[in-house]
Design a protein around this nucleic acid. Structure first.
Lengths: 333, 333
DNA sequence: ATCAAAAATTGAAACGTTTCATTTTCTTCA
DNA sequence: TGAAGAAAATGAAACGTTTCAATTTTTGAT
């Protein structure tokens, strides 16, 4: 193991000078040359422990997400990596497995690992015990979901308008009886999407029918019961808007199992995107979120904070969604 | 920041004793009590840098995968986490973005981060410059794919028999003209799956038709051209076996775009599993890999190595696949 | 009660950096 | 050419652990 001392000796300068070179301070041209030569010759790699011991910096950021197998999350991560990896940051990814308890645990865990900053997608919008972390001066950036009573930087989608545009499209195709599978109202995105739905109906003077609003978990198996409830109404909706990935997938599953045809017997518009959604007949209408961009933005804000720039805190960035319109929502005239 | 010294002072013992307590060595009952009390009172957390500086251990393992958005990879990761997280290991995940160059880079990167061990799913089976890492005594466990000239521990699926069982099923449904979209032959799994295909045909005395064997990249857009090639043959195959997730998805896409119906106009059997595959009409026949178990096994082997137990090296573990049989492969009699 | 052996504790060195008060070297201008 | 000021280099302390030789305490046999 070669150390900075070996380099100093070979280059015939002091360790302090080598350290200054490594950290990008100005040194005499001749010494720079000698040090570079020595580093190369000895294949010197600076020891992160020793550095961390002095600086308390790890060049590591923690990313906490609800679930690692969620395609939304992994696309966000790709965006984060795109920004942070070139700067030599490590990313430690933790999954809360959809559980608030595990979320707490992993938060502590990341703190104990001395990450320089965190990007967190909260499991719900009720609680996030980041106080201790923030008090310690570790910057935290939220993604996708805001949390009550948390004054944190955040990058979210414009869920209100995302939902609004979907429902508007459904209305414009002639539907008036529009069901929604909303999410748990303790989740920020779920609230917003419901708001978008309500606002669209209101703007188009369509009366709101409480029976058409059903709630489901935003988890792996969420939405099955909810859709069944909608379909068992005497006066069934002609179109259903599902508001996240699992409820969309599960609704498709239920509809198909019942032998109904999407876009004919019942219209469906979903949320979040998969290649596969566009391969059904007809392809599925969906609200698409700019996942990668969310990751990029979050990483950039975090970077700014980690560099000590706390201007404009808390900075809340809202990204636009995109609507894919297909025949999965039937034109009624 | 409270240190071991503060604890020692409060508990009225020496730092050495506190250290021994922390590392689980035997100490006098009375001291244990006092130390525990002090640690609790001061909310002491041991500093990973200082420890690492002495021990050169990070309690971190690196996981290098071809692509983070690949569902196969993330399920494997869930398995790894299941084993490693309870033991307080951090997992640093790196994606090679399907590029051998990035793979090399990330490998170096992980090494520079002083991970205690690595789990690597290689981008291909040709090269993996882990020599330097292995020479440094950092244990490496391969998953899913073996690499030429690499004597490493590995957890892989029995791809030969996975493919064999799929092709056998197709044969048993009466098909004789069976196409395969094989993968790049520099990828271990692709080789094996082709072998399984060939072996099944041979065992059932079906002549091998070179025209029915086409190759595709195992990447995001792989398989489109390959399937088109099969479908444009004068004597088209009646069934096609696609040998990984992207080629399966893309084949479905091509078939549907041509207005053909899977299980009627052409039979299809794929590889790897998604919820969505079972929602098509008919659902898709696929070879399913035990992703989570792969992760678990790999983590367990790695753990053993990191604890200094090198018995039975290189240990190569082979897990069985499962076949889901549906009407996407038509019964011909 | 005594002593030898075993067990536990102590305290200081070492790990490889960064940092900072000093010292040395370089630059500029009269 | 010399002096003052600026720039760069020096070297030792400090970061918070672990480890190990030396020391103290405990145990158990006589």
């Amino acid at each position: 193991m070669t150390t900075i001392k070996d380099v100093a000796k070979l280059a015939n300068v002091s360790v302090g000078t080598v350290s200054r070179y490594i950290n990008g301070h100005r040194i005499k041209e001749e010494n720079r040359r000698k040090i570079e030569e020595a580093i190369h010759q000895l294949n010197f790699k600076s020891n992160p422990f020793a550095r961390g011991l002095r600086t308390n910096k790890t060049l590591t950021v923690g990313v906490l997400i609800p679930r690692i197998t969620d395609i939304f999350c992994t696309q966000v991560i790709e965006g984060i990596e795109e920004v942070l990896n070139p700067l030599n940051y490590s990313i430690v990814i933790c999954s809360a497995n959809d559980s608030p308890e595990q979320q707490s645990e992993k938060l502590k865990y990341l703190k104990s690992k001395y990450v320089d900053g965190m990007i967190v997608m909260p499991v719900n919008s009720l609680e996030l015990d980041v106080e201790e972390i923030v008090d310690d001066g570790i910057p935290v950036v939220l993604i996708d979901r805001l949390v009550k009573n948390c004054e944190l930087d955040a990058v979210v989608c414009d869920n209100v308008n995302g939902a609004y545009s979907a429902v508007e499209m459904i209305i414009n195709k002639g539907h008036r009886k529009i069901g929604i599978i909303a999410g748990p109202q303790d989740i920020y995105t779920a609230q917003e999407r419901l708001t978008g739905y309500l606002r669209a109906l209101t703007d188009y003077n369509i009366e709101i029918n409480e029976d058409y609003i059903v709630y489901a978990e935003y988890k792996k198996d969420g939405g099955i019961e909810a859709l069944n409830q909608l379909l068992s109404l005497k006066d069934k909706p002609t179109a259903v808007f599902t508001t996240n990935y699992p409820t969309t997938v599960n609704s498709m599953k239920v509809i198909m199992e019942k032998g109904l045809k999407i876009g004919e017997d019942i219209s469906l518009c979903g949320y979040d995107q998969t290649d596969l959604f566009q391969m059904f007949h007809p392809p599925l209408s969906v609200v698409v979120q700019p996942c990668r961009e969310i990751g990029i933005s979050a990483a950039e804000i975090l970077l700014k904070r980690m560099n000590g720039d706390f201007g404009g805190h808390p900075q809340i960035q809202r990204l636009k969604t995109k609507l894919i319109t297909t025949d999965s929502v039937k034109r009624l005239f």
